[in-house]
Simulated assay, not measured.
Amino acid sequence: MTSKQSSPSPQNKQGTPRAQSVREHPRNLASQKQVDVRTHLEKLAEKVPGVKKANVVITGNTAIVGIDVDGDLDRSRVGTIKYSVAEALRKDPYGKNAIVTADVDISKRLAEIGNDIRRGHPISGFASELADIVGRIMPQVPSDTKAKR
């Protein structure tokens, strides 16, 4: 029979317990300083080779990340860059629920929404605009359709 022992709590040199500094992922990105999280995710995406600029808008637990790439790149190279950004974000606790797009129109819309938010202007139809953007990003899968009878 083995006994289970818990590991001792970290202690400083004087032998008194010290607080552990573990940064936990928030349940809702909106509960954090969105500016800090948004900037962090933009910088993370912009570190990926081939990304000129990234624009991030956060809603709930989801970050929508629009990336700007060279317009002369072929589709497969853009897909590779987009996948690399998604990989980088997946490894980050704030980016794991992100949606990444390289669509020029959507990226511009995200930049405009972000600029309006930073200027403190109320955005009428903000939720519907984001819903439209997400609707454009999400694919339609044939198996999700219902057959007509």
Rank of each mutant, 00 (worst) to 15 (best):
S3K: 14
S3R: 13
Q5N: 14
S6N: 15
S7V: 03
S7T: 03
S7N: 09
P8F: 14
P8L: 11
S9F: 12
S9E: 14
S9T: 09
P10H: 07
P10V: 06
Q11R: 09
Q11L: 09
N12E: 07
G15V: 01
P17L: 03
P17N: 01
R18V: 02
R18S: 00
R18K: 04
R18D: 00
Q20N: 07
Q20C: 01
S21H: 02
R23W: 04
E24H: 04
H25F: 07
P26C: 03
R27M: 11
R27L: 14
N28S: 02
S31Y: 05
K33N: 15
Q34S: 05
Q34D: 10
D36H: 15
D36T: 10
V37T: 06
H40A: 14
K43M: 13
L44G: 11
L44H: 14
K47C: 11
V48C: 14
V48E: 12
V51L: 06
V51C: 12
K52Y: 09
K53P: 12
A54N: 13
A54L: 07
V56P: 05
V56C: 15
V57P: 02
G60T: 02
G60A: 04
A63D: 09
A63R: 02
V65H: 08
V65P: 04
G66Q: 07
D68A: 08
D70P: 05
L73R: 00
D74L: 05
R77C: 07
V78C: 12
V78E: 11
G79Y: 11
G79D: 15
G79L: 09
T80G: 14
T80Q: 14
I81S: 10
I81Y: 10
K82Q: 15
S84Y: 08
S84G: 11
S84V: 03
V85T: 11
V85D: 13
E87F: 10
A88R: 12
A88G: 13
L89T: 13
R90H: 13
K91C: 11
K91H: 12
K91D: 09
D92H: 14
Y94A: 02
Y94T: 03
G95E: 07
K96Q: 04
K96D: 09
I99C: 12
I99H: 11
V100Y: 01
D103L: 11
D103R: 07
V104K: 06
V104D: 04
S107R: 03
L110G: 02
L110E: 07
E112D: 01
E112Q: 01
I113Y: 00
I113L: 00
N115C: 04
D116R: 11
R118T: 06
R118G: 06
R119Q: 08
I123C: 08
I123V: 06
S124Q: 09
S124M: 08
F126I: 03
S128D: 00
S128R: 00
E129M: 00
V134C: 03
R136C: 05
R136T: 09
I137W: 04
V141L: 08
V141K: 07
P142H: 08
D144P: 02
K146W: 04
A147W: 06
R149K: 12
R149F: 14
